[in-house]
Design a protein around this nucleic acid. Sequence first.
DNA 1: ATGTATGCAAACCATTTGCAATGAC
DNA 2: GTCATTGCAAATGGTTTGCATACAT
Lengths: 159, 159
Amino acid sequence: MENNSKNKESIQQILTNLIEEKGLRKTPERFAILDEIYKIEGHFTIDSLYSLLNEKNFHVSRATLYNTIELLLECNLVIKHHFGNDTAEYEKCHNCKIHHHLVCTNCGEIREFTDVNIRRNIQTKHYKKFEMTHYSLVVYGLCDKCKESQSHTNTKEEI
Amino acid sequence: MENNSKNKESIQQILTNLIEEKGLRKTPERFAILDEIYKIEGHFTIDSLYSLLNEKNFHVSRATLYNTIELLLECNLVIKHHFGNDTAEYEKCHNCKIHHHLVCTNCGEIREFTDVNIRRNIQTKHYKKFEMTHYSLVVYGLCDKCKESQSHTNTKEEI
DNA sequence: ATGTATGCAAACCATTTGCAATGAC
DNA sequence: GTCATTGCAAATGGTTTGCATACAT
């Protein structure tokens, strides 16, 4: 608990630093949005975040969400994903276990996995004339459910 | 040369197979689009492909491009990327060297790189209840040019 | 007091959809 | 002849923008 609140403070501090560095303003919206995001486990979209905040009677416009997310991306408190669909998905990412994604190209299901070797390989690599901040590994394929149903439809139809 | 045309045939054959499998029609548009895509080195968007075809006086609508690309994705003749921006980028991918991408989060520049170890790690991994068809690895960061200009703006302004 | 941040609504733009005309089978 | 495919234009939906109001500094 104490740990959590310390953690929360240190996360807020990162945003504060960016805000001060850039001469921006510490609005309540920005910190409320940050707090809410750090309560979310897993992915969220601008829309799901919008609903979440509204349910709690904290009204912010989508425009503000987009603006704030931009700041959070800049200081690496949030990561943005583009999976198959058109909607961007986001995730908190400070002090979080690095993970990769499995996306089923048939049903769209997204699963996470971790792999130390893959991670180490990517992170320790020296990229010529390029300084990595983060990376995204998405593995596409068929989940078991879809593989099954596809192999059924592929067999000759029973008449 | 002969090799190229053999290669072209075998690529067309893959599309033909899918078309026959699904009971679709072999329209000239579908094969013209496929041919054009396989002449492109590097990435393209629906819009750049649209312009390319029109310049050569082969008119196809964007709707048809979207439809056809869908087929080509299905038979793994084309791969779709979502980098930072909202526009999807595509690439031919049959018999092509597998590569990964470096994306500069500041200027948007995209570079390619290959790494045998990373590739082997990802491809030989056993994914539980999941059958991989392909994957996408995007490394984000700052290219040298942007790193330089950023470190300049970060130092105190000279007045 | 100043000018940034917000909320709202309109604009934008890639992608999708509906439908009539075309053409592969 | 039938029905999938095309082209066009309209619709969709996530994201961005313009502007008046609110509020952090």
